[in-house]
Computed example of a mutant assay.
Amino acid sequence: MAGEIDHHTGDALSQALDFSGMPCPRVVMDLRQVAFMDSTGINILIAAHRALTEAGG
């Protein structure tokens, strides 16, 4: 079953991408099973990228 990233699942993704307090965090995501992503998911990924960059990751 393919997954979706939208306003219903966005909180779980945000929590999974919470790396606060980690020195030089690194994140690798496998999105092969994601069949749909709305702007909620895209905004979460952009915010995570910005936070990773600021943290030196």
Rank of each mutant, 00 (worst) to 15 (best):
M1S: 12
M1Y: 03
M1R: 09
M1T: 09
A2C: 06
G3S: 12
G3V: 06
G3R: 14
E4D: 13
I5A: 06
I5H: 07
D6A: 04
D6W: 05
D6N: 15
H7G: 11
H7L: 13
H7M: 10
H8K: 10
H8W: 10
T9V: 05
G10H: 12
G10S: 15
D11M: 04
A12L: 14
L13W: 06
L13P: 01
S14V: 07
S14D: 09
S14K: 12
S14F: 01
Q15I: 01
Q15C: 01
A16T: 06
A16E: 04
A16G: 01
A16L: 13
L17P: 02
L17E: 02
D18E: 07
D18K: 01
D18R: 02
D18H: 03
F19G: 00
F19L: 13
S20T: 14
S20L: 01
M22T: 12
M22E: 12
P23D: 14
C24H: 15
C24T: 12
C24G: 12
C24I: 00
P25F: 09
P25V: 05
R26P: 00
R26V: 14
V27G: 00
V27Y: 00
V27W: 00
V27D: 00
V28K: 15
V28R: 15
M29C: 13
M29H: 09
M29W: 03
L31Y: 10
L31W: 10
R32G: 13
R32Y: 07
Q33P: 04
Q33Y: 06
V34F: 09
A35I: 05
F36V: 07
M37H: 08
M37I: 15
M37Q: 09
D38N: 11
D38P: 05
S39N: 10
T40K: 05
G41M: 11
I42R: 07
N43C: 08
N43K: 13
I44F: 12
I44R: 09
I44G: 06
I44C: 09
I44Q: 07
I44D: 07
L45H: 06
I46F: 13
I46G: 05
A47F: 03
A47M: 07
A48D: 01
H49T: 12
H49W: 10
R50H: 14
R50V: 11
A51K: 15
A51T: 11
A51G: 05
A51S: 14
L52D: 00
T53Q: 14
T53K: 15
E54S: 08
E54T: 06
A55Y: 05
A55E: 01
A55W: 07
A55D: 02
G57H: 04
G57C: 07
